[in-house]
């Protein structure tokens, strides 16, 4: 099969659509989805690319001004449409037991109707924030909260980011005490994996204990 474990292909980046398709492993994997969102330019695409074992893929989703997702705007004349770019990548785990999809999506509030559609079935979301403009993260936090997803906030530090303590970030974002807050460099794999672990631990915390009825 055209299937390689993630570790050996993590560095495989490049242009996206031209590549040969990477077929799913023949293990009948459980597919799971996590959202990666946040304000403009915060590092969403970079994060997905760093972790993905396949060259990241890209779809354009169209949303009418009224907010309804549409398949072809040309068939609904008179409506203006917004295009939302979605980057996604894939991570095979446990020898093909799971395939985890990471959907990198913009976090602006106006995308709410499409965002809910994109997020359907997702386990949770990672909200990337830039401490130089923390308030820009509120939209993304609203989106994930309205979609009902558990989330973790990841501070993506840039070279000219002034130092700011995580406690101060937590206070400025008015985070629920239970919401994890981590730091990442979206270009560095180890930290990105840690961010997904923090998110998955949080997802697990929020799932009810299974008790026999």
């Amino acid at each position: 099969m055209d299937f390689a474990p993630s570790s050996s292909t993590a560095a495989l980046v490049g242009d996206v659509r031209s590549g040969a398709p990477a077929y799913l492993p023949p293990t009948d994997p459980v597919l799971m989805k996590l959202m990666v969102t946040g304000p403009f330019g915060v590092g969403k695409t970079t994060f997905v690319r760093t972790l993905s074992e396949i060259p990241t893929l890209h779809t354009e989703e169209t949303m009418t001004a009224a907010g309804a997702p549409v398949d072809d705007i040309s068939r609904t004349p008179g409506k203006t449409a917004t295009t939302v770019a979605v980057d996604f990548g894939r991570l095979t785990l446990t020898g093909g037991e799971f395939v985890l999809y990471l959907f990198g999506t913009p976090g602006q509030r106006r995308f709410l109707p499409l965002w809910e559609d994109l997020a359907r079935g997702a386990l949770g979301a990672l909200v990337l924030v830039d401490t130089r403009r923390l308030a820009d993260a509120f939209d993304a936090m609203d989106l994930v909260e309205e979609a009902g997803l558990p989330y973790t906030v990841a501070v993506n530090r840039f070279p000219d980011t002034p130092p700011i303590a995580l406690d101060a970030v937590r206070a400025a974002l008015d985070l629920d005490p239970a919401t994890p807050l981590v730091e990442v460099d979206a270009r560095e794999r180890e930290g990105c994996v840690d961010a997904l672990i923090a998110l998955t631990e949080h997802v697990l915390d929020r799932l009810p204990q299974e008790t026999a009825p």
Binding site: L91, L93, T94, E97, F98, L100, E190, D194, T200, L204
Partner: peptide, 10 residues
Amino acid sequence: RLLSGLRALK
């Protein structure tokens, strides 16, 4: 199981 899969990436 997802969590242990992620931990195994490290």
